[in-house]
Amino acid sequence: MTSHTTVTTPNPDQINDVAATNTAAANDAAAGDSATADADNVDNGIELSTIFEPYFRPDANTIVCGALDEQKVEALAKAGVELVINLQPDDELSFDEAAAVKRAGMYYEQLPVSGAADLKQLKVLAFDNILRQYHGKKVALHCGSGNRVGAVTALRAGWLRGRKMDTAMARGRSHGLSKLEDEVYNRLLVPR
């Protein structure tokens, strides 16, 4: 008895489709691994988005969040933050934040902004000065909710950086601007 084996030659288009699918899958896996590695590298493997609420990340070196406590200060330090800028006045703080930040090995700056009444050019100039002094450092900016950080950031973009209204407001929103949005918009209408 003779045995016959049928050999089927695949269509060249099928070979190319399979190769393309395998290459795309490998690229997707590598990109996913790379994105995960990049995120891990940015914050030393600390998942800040699960620790802070609210949490804004306008860029790799800027973190905007709400009020801090001892554990959150430690998380920022582990994530490689070099500077904490606090826009809350002392009467809003529940612990000695300056001491906790310094103990954790970070720089600390406090620029109290109580609300809309403090959104003045001198405060924005002081904010700009702090950011310039620590240029290139990984920074965590905070207030109670991120709203005041966003307001000061938008005013800085408009008044000091000469950004157009839409750009300045978008910059503020990326840093947490919400309830003070109308106030900031009206202040940006006035040339400085």
Rank of each mutant, 00 (worst) to 15 (best):
A98R: 05
T167D: 13
Y108I: 03
I130C: 07
E70C: 03
A77F: 07
G105T: 04
A151G: 08
P89H: 04
A35E: 15
R57K: 11
L188N: 05
R57V: 04
L189R: 14
D17K: 13
A20H: 00
F56P: 07
Y108S: 05
T21L: 08
V152Q: 04
H175Q: 09
A35T: 15
I15T: 15
V84Q: 02
L76T: 06
D96K: 01
D166M: 15
A67M: 11
V81P: 00
Q121C: 00
A26T: 09
V139G: 03
T50P: 12
Q110T: 07
N41G: 12
G162I: 15
T6I: 09
A126L: 02
R171V: 02
T153V: 09
A154R: 12
A168W: 03
V7M: 04
W159V: 03
T6D: 00
K72Y: 00
A157H: 09
V64M: 08
A100F: 03
F127T: 02
G158R: 12
R57Q: 01
Q88G: 05
H4A: 12
L87G: 09
V190W: 10
K78V: 09
R161F: 06
P112M: 08
E92Q: 01
T6P: 00
S94L: 06
A37W: 15
S34M: 15
A19I: 15
E109V: 06
L125S: 02
N129W: 09
K137R: 06
G162A: 09
D59F: 14
Q88R: 08
K179T: 10
K72A: 06
N186V: 12
Q88M: 08
A75S: 15
A31L: 14
R57M: 02
D43A: 12
V84L: 06
L48D: 12
D43M: 06
A67F: 09
L177A: 08
N11W: 00
A24T: 10
D43W: 05
K179A: 07
G150Y: 11
H175I: 12
I15K: 15
T153Q: 05
N27D: 13
R173D: 09
A60E: 14
E109W: 03
V64G: 10
